[in-house]
């Protein structure tokens, strides 16, 4: 049985007070609670401060290119479905650079967990607007304010009937840990958009801003009700609902594909010989 200690404790490149710390803690707690050994897990991440998170715990890791973690994770999961695959990256990486892969992963319903550190700003490059920045969000590169409407990841995922759609908040680590546990055991694509402040570059969406708004969904809420989920997905400014917003039981990609693991499968030369015979 794995414990939080098995996942290690490492020095990070994050600013003091960063929301990433809460997410990292919730991840370790969730994996320990599920009893998953580090060697059974493959993290795949992109580029950005969030994408560094898997370097700060013990697990297998492929830290790839900006925006491209979902296709890498998809290939790895198909090669070895026995791995618990978790993708961890930021809002810019996932919804901006990797937007097409986000849509495709939902359509495939590939059995992986997508953990998005959503702080509504680019941190590593020192404060430009991100796809989830609010309209009018002022930065050094958008001095007159961001002129694009913010991307609504929850709304898009629910509209596409993604297998599991949740929103977390780095300031509610117990709830977040619970969401991660549910996502990891969900058979299919599981999105958790985790709100957290960037203490260095986002002066609008601060700890206080999120704390005032984030509110767990009531126990009576039914996440299998798609229409209700669509309505919840639109709530933002005054109240931001946190929890499992939508889920369904669509079979995951690997199951529909009907293949076992690719890794470890030998080559059957008689079958290839038969195929070659078809060219005679």
């Amino acid at each position: 049985m794995a414990s939080v200690k098995d996942y290690g404790q490492y020095e990070t490149a994050w600013c003091p007070g960063c929301g990433n710390f809460g997410i990292l803690l919730a991840v370790k707690r969730a994996l320990a609670a599920r009893g998953i050994e580090p060697r059974q897990i493959l993290f795949v991440s992109g580029i950005g401060q969030a994408a560094k998170a898997p370097h700060y715990l013990n697990a297998n890791l492929f830290n790839g290119l900006h925006g491209r973690s979902l296709p890498v994770a998809t290939g790895a999961k198909l090669a070895n479905p026995g791995l618990t695959v978790i993708v961890e990256s930021g809002d810019g990486c996932t919804y901006g650079e990797g937007g097409n892969h986000f849509l495709a992963a939902i359509r495939r319903n590939i059995d992986i967990t997508m953990l998005v550190h959503d702080n509504q700003v680019y941190g590593l490059t020192k404060g430009q607007a991100s796809p989830t920045s609010g309209e009018g969000f002022v930065t050094k590169t958008q001095p007159e304010g961001s002129t694009s409407a913010p991307f609504n990841p929850i709304g898009v995922a629910v509209a596409m009937r993604a297998g599991f759609v949740a929103r977390g908040f780095a300031g509610m680590t117990d709830l977040l840990s619970d969401l991660i546990q549910q996502a990891v055991i969900h058979p299919g694509f599981a999105l958790i958009d985790v709100l957290h402040p960037c203490v260095s570059f986002n002066r609008v969406n601060t700890w206080e801003w999120y704390q005032e708004r984030c509110e767990p969904l009531p126990k009576t809420y039914d996440p299998t009700d798609w229409n209700a989920a669509m309505a919840i997905a639109q709530q933002w400014e005054e109240r931001i609902p946190v929890g499992v917003i939508y889920r369904n039981a669509r079979p995951p990609f690997t199951e529909r594909m009907g293949r076992g693991p690719l890794v470890g499968q030998g080559v059957d030369r008689d079958k290839i010989k038969r195929i070659m015979g078809g060219f005679l």
Partner: peptide, 14 residues
């Protein structure tokens, strides 16, 4: 996605 996917599969052993 094509090449990134192939790299993921190869990394995991295919």
């Amino acid at each position: 996605a094509v090449l990134n996917m192939a790299l993921g599969a190869s990394f995991a052993g295919a």
